[in-house]
Simulated assay, not measured.
Amino acid sequence: MELEIGACEAALGRLDRGCFGVCEQCGEFIETNRLVASPSESLCLSCRLKSPV
């Protein structure tokens, strides 16, 4: 539960900074369907697949 709250707070911070929806790793836009499914997502699909969990 605390991890989810932290992820939501991080997403709100990205929204405040104007970088919500932009991949934190490569700088490309995160796919809209990923953000609809998980608004706290910070990586595009390509970077998520490369990133260790």
Rank of each mutant, 00 (worst) to 15 (best):
R14Q: 13
L49S: 13
E31N: 00
S51K: 12
I30N: 01
G21I: 00
C26K: 05
S42Y: 11
G6C: 06
P52T: 05
C19E: 15
C44G: 03
S40Y: 12
S46M: 04
S51W: 13
Q25S: 14
E9I: 00
C47I: 00
C26W: 11
G18F: 08
L12P: 02
C26T: 03
S46D: 12
A37N: 13
F29P: 01
L49W: 08
E9Q: 06
R17M: 10
P52Q: 11
E4P: 00
D16N: 02
V53F: 13
P39S: 10
E4L: 04
S38Y: 09
L35I: 05
V22G: 07
E9G: 01
P39K: 02
R14N: 11
A37H: 13
L15G: 04
V53Y: 14
G21H: 07
A11S: 08
S38L: 09
V36W: 08
N33F: 12
F20L: 07
S40T: 08
N33M: 06
S42Q: 08
L15I: 05
R48N: 09
Q25T: 10
E4Y: 09
V22H: 14
C44R: 02
I5F: 11
R34V: 10
I5L: 13
L45Y: 14
S46A: 09
G13W: 13
G21V: 03
S38K: 07
C23F: 08
E24Y: 03
N33R: 10
R48A: 12
C23W: 06
D16H: 05
G13I: 06
R34Q: 10
A10V: 03
S51P: 02
G27F: 09
A37R: 13
F20M: 05
E9F: 07
A10K: 06
F20N: 02
V22W: 15
N33S: 11
E41T: 01
F29C: 05
E2Y: 09
C19Q: 15
C19L: 10
E28S: 04
I30A: 03
E41Y: 07
L49I: 04
G6L: 11
G13M: 10
E4H: 04
L43V: 06
L43S: 08
L43W: 13
S40H: 11
E28T: 04
G13D: 15
R17F: 12
L15H: 12
G27I: 03
R17E: 15
A7Q: 10
A10Y: 12
A11F: 07
L3P: 02
N33K: 07
S38V: 03
E28H: 05
C44N: 02
V22R: 12
E2R: 04
L45H: 12
C8F: 14
E31D: 05
L3W: 12
L45M: 08
G18E: 10
